[in-house]
Simulated scan of single mutants.
Amino acid sequence: MRAMTVLLALCSCVSLSVVPAASPEDAILAAREIIGQQIQAFLNDDPATAYAFASPAIREKFPTEAGFFDMVRRQYAPVYHPGNFAFGRARQDGGMILQEVLISGPDGKDWTALYQLLRQPDDSYRINAMHLVPAAPGPDI
């Protein structure tokens, strides 16, 4: 099992990161802040804050905070309550950011989450999708 660095150095305040990104590097940093704040909201069992980071398309599929939160809790346990997580590779393509997040689930298993964030009309970013796959084991050490 590979070791992961805990990057849970998030501020304890619940200020939503909606500041427009000026450069591609700023956009990726903003995306990481958004993902981190949403994961922190899951850890705090805070449906309102977690839901605030969802894109309009996600809100259309899950029109209530409770429905969204329950779906994540049931289908994405490693994201809902990770043991720890670290940001991996990121790519920006126009108004879309793909961000890899390496997650250690509550059961100790490693996962890779690929987040898709879309730029909104106000130039903020919102989480539009997340695909979760088991992490492949690394070489034996």
Results as ranks from 00 to 15, higher is better:
Met1Leu: 13
Ala3Ser: 09
Ala3Val: 14
Ala3Gly: 05
Ala3Glu: 15
Ala9Asp: 14
Ala9Lys: 07
Cys13Leu: 02
Cys13Ser: 11
Val14His: 09
Val18Asn: 09
Val19His: 07
Ala21Asp: 05
Ala22Met: 04
Pro24Ile: 08
Ala27Pro: 04
Ile28Tyr: 04
Ala30Leu: 14
Glu33Ser: 04
Ile34Tyr: 01
Gly36Trp: 02
Gln40Glu: 05
Asn44Lys: 10
Pro47Thr: 09
Ala48Ile: 10
Thr49Ser: 12
Ala50Asn: 05
Ala50Val: 05
Ser55Asn: 02
Ile58Arg: 14
Lys61Ser: 15
Phe62Asn: 11
Thr64Lys: 03
Glu65Arg: 07
Glu65Leu: 02
Val72Lys: 01
Gln75Trp: 03
Gln75His: 14
Pro78Glu: 10
Pro78Leu: 03
Val79Met: 12
Val79Ala: 13
Asn84Ile: 05
Arg91Met: 08
Asp93Ile: 09
Ile97His: 06
Asp110Thr: 01
Thr112Asp: 00
Thr112Gln: 06
Ala113Val: 09
Gln116Ala: 13
Gln120Asn: 04
Pro121Glu: 07
Asp122Ile: 08
Asp123Asn: 14
Ser124Thr: 12
Tyr125Ile: 06
Ile127Arg: 10
Ile127Ala: 11
Ile127Met: 15
Ala129Tyr: 14
Ala129Gly: 09
His131Glu: 12
Val133Tyr: 02
Val133Gln: 13
Ala135His: 08
